[in-house]
Amino acid sequence: MRKMNRHQVVVFSLGILLIFSIIISIRFGRYPIPGKELLGILLSKFYPIEKFWPEQVEIVLLNIRLPRILLACLVGCCLSAAGAAYQGVFQNPMAAPDVLGASQGAAFGAALAILCYRNSTFITFSAFFFSLLTVALVFLISQRARGKTILALVLSGIMISSLFSAATSFIKLVADPTDQLPAITYWLMGSLAGAKFSDILFSIIPMSLGLIPLLLLRWRLNVLTLGDDEAKTMGVNARKIRLLVIICATFVTAASVSVSGMIGWVGLIIPHLARKLVGNNFNQLMPAAMLLGAIFLLFVDNFSRNLFTTEIPLGILTAFIGAPFFIYLITRKGESF
């Protein structure tokens, strides 16, 4: 077997760090769960063990804490994978998962669902549907635009995003200020509070449909960053691969945003942090970004649910942590972008 290089060691260590983070996160919370009880509850799912823990603890663990932790990991993983992928196909280190309007579309879908029929499954579904619809719209418009494909895509993304954002504002204007408006505002700030196993079941299919191809295509992504012409002369069908990557990245973004609301910054800073750790080669960058994203969002969500008695929405925390961190990254001495 070939010796692992330094970057592969980093990726491997991140994997181990993620497992530790999950275990630590399970124990922390308003009801701390001791390690012995945690082990007992988990093992009892596979072997019959006589209950030595209170029923309440098991409910907290399985129905509230575990789904939330898993969802935080999945969403963090997806957002940063999508961010890294978009940065690659647009050859632009400033691209983020919402560059093609996936988040604004989801926001509109969620707001509309809250306005019409308030049911959490319906809200998730509507957000997911409108997110995909927005990106499809952006893509169709860019196909009709003259000139450079990438620029056309990004510009139509900006336009359609602002259109949907205006529509969302309009919904907020007409929404009932006593219950609908706060619900919309809260959704827009992004949160994993109230995560259920059904959310995971809903999002796991589009997430894996997107994440697996992104992992498999990661070498081609390297070649795509050199530009279409060069990629073609090296035997890569740039248009086809880019379309495929955009579809996958959109699927994972839509699936994440629809269960978590708007969580900014993760898709931008985590790929950058991963670049600092393992370099720009997507072979290591993609898995590193996925693992790091999961760890990051898990930690932020731990703060969100433990720091104060009332929860701080995730989107606010990621911005508070993300923006200064990003400033540090770009002003730090050493290697430039």
Binding site: G88, P93, G279, N280
Partner: peptide, 23 residues
């Protein structure tokens, strides 16, 4: 290019046509 690759990775990209799309 937009992203800084190591010289070795850059050269390795030339072999892309020899490997299948997903590897």
């Amino acid at each position: 290019p937009s992203f800084n690759y190591s010289v070795f990775d850059m050269v390795l990209m030339g072999t892309t046509v020899q490997v299948s799309t997903i590897s």
